[in-house]
Structures are given as C-alpha cells and as structure tokens.
C-alpha cells in the first residue's frame, strides 16, 4: 500500500457507495424542509433565517456522513493494515477526509441555489453562502473525523459522537451565518469568511494528528 493506491481506492469505494453520500444529501434537504413546515413558511421569517437554517442542516448532514467514515475500515481490519503499513496514519486520515469532503460538498453546492431560492434567500447573499460553505465545511469534516475515530469501536457510537463533536461546530456556524447575515444587510463580510478559513486551516493541521492518536487507541 502507498498513499497513491490508498487515495485511489478511497475514491473508488466512495463512488461505489454513492448511496451513502446521497443519503446525507437527502437528510440535508429533509432538515431544511422541516423549518418552513414547523415554524413559519412566510418569506418574512425564512429570508433572514435562511443562512442559519442551511448551516444547521449542513452541520447535521456532515456529522451523519462523517460518523461512519472509519466503521468499515475498522470492521474489515483495514485500520490494522494502516498501522502495520508504516505509512503515516495522519496523512491517510487527511486523504480520506479530503476525498469525503469533495464527495459531499460538491453535490451540496449544486443543490444549494435551489434550496436558497426555496428559503427566499436574496440572490446577493447566495455567493457568500456558497463561499462560507466552501471555507467552513473542511473544519466540520476534520473535527468530525476525530469523533468518528474515537467512537469507531462502539456499536452505538453515533449519539456519543454527536455529543462530542457538535459543541465544537459552534464557532463555524456562528461565523458562517454571521457572514451571510452581513451580506444580507449589505455590510462587510470578508472578516467572517477569513476567520472561517482560519478555523478550517487549524482543523486541517491538528485533526489528522488527533484522529491518528484515536485510531491507534481504537485498534487493539
């Protein structure tokens, strides 16, 4: 095994398991549908809330996608092979998360304009919303991968993983929705986007190391 063959196989397995990605996406749409139904379908409520609704749904959908990311590798012994391969586990984690991020976020960005329209988000803010998704979601994936690594050996780890990871998502959600709101009010939003990017970079630097420690501890 080397990094290239691993990365290729990771893609291949994500493509073979498209249904998992599709499920996360459908879940995202479902959560968004609940808000007009459960709270208020008028544009007076939805238009200012759209950024927040979309971001909360994104965070939940990503948690769902990330939660089981190592499950199969754990069950079929691949994680043991990672450790025995002599390759850096952090880099393997990074490659895996990157592949997963592309698989989930690209289709998400494609459906986003439609959903933003349904939530009456002004067209001027759509670009900022997409930028915030692009800059903020890497942090969600990388932080989530730590939780997934910690709970991989538990049969019912999903709820525990939500409890561990969701609080850490708060800053991303706050700054992302802040950027969208600022754009809606025609104020400067570049600061929030910059912070989102910074959070993602920090997560990118530290999470693979933490996830590697957790994987090492999980496998034994």
């Amino acid at each position: 095994m080397n990094y290239r063959s691993y990365f290729k196989s990771e893609w291949l397995s994500l493509l073979r398991r498209k249904q998992d990605t599709l499920n996360a996406l459908l879940f995202f749409v479902m959560v968004i549908t609940l808000f007009p139904l459960g709270v208020d379908p008028s544009s007076e409520f939805l238009s200012p809330a759209a950024g927040g609704i979309i971001w909360c749904a994104t965070a939940l959908a990503i948690l769902m996608a990330v939660e089981g990311m190592y499950k199969e590798d754990y069950n079929d012994g691949s994680l043991e092979q990672w450790l025995a391969s002599g390759l850096s586990v952090s880099i393997l984690v990074f490659l895996k998360v990157f592949a997963q991020w592309v698989m989930v976020v690209v289709p998400l960005l494609l459906v986003l304009p439609l959903l933003a329209q349904m939530l009456f988000l002004p067209a001027s803010a759509l670009g900022v919303l997409m930028c915030s998704i692009l800059l903020g979601t890497p942090a969600l994936f990388f932080i989530g991968s730590i939780g997934a690594a910690l709970t991989v050996s538990l049969r019912r780890g999903a709820v525990l993983m939500l409890l561990l990871i969701l609080p850490l998502y708060i800053p991303v959600i706050v700054f992302a929705t802040g950027a969208v709101r600022a754009a809606q009010m025609e104020m400067a939003y570049s600061g929030q986007l910059a912070i989102l990017g910074a959070i993602s970079l920090v997560a990118l630097a530290l999470s693979p190391i933490m996830a590697a420690v957790s994987i090492r501890a999980s496998v034994n």
Partner: peptide, 24 residues
C-alpha cells in the same frame, strides 16, 4: 507483513482491486 484476524479485505472491491490496493 502482518495479517490479523480480519485481514483488511474490503467488501466493495473485487479480489483484484483488493490486491491492487496493497500491491500497487
């Protein structure tokens, strides 16, 4: 080369693809 109780064979891949992953 280590082979454990579960030897790291992935269900989504064919036999050939599994080998290709480990011996690129």
């Amino acid at each position: 080369l280590y082979l454990g109780h579960t030897p790291g064979i992935k269900n989504v891949f064919t036999a050939l693809e599994n080998l290709k992953l480990y011996c690129p």
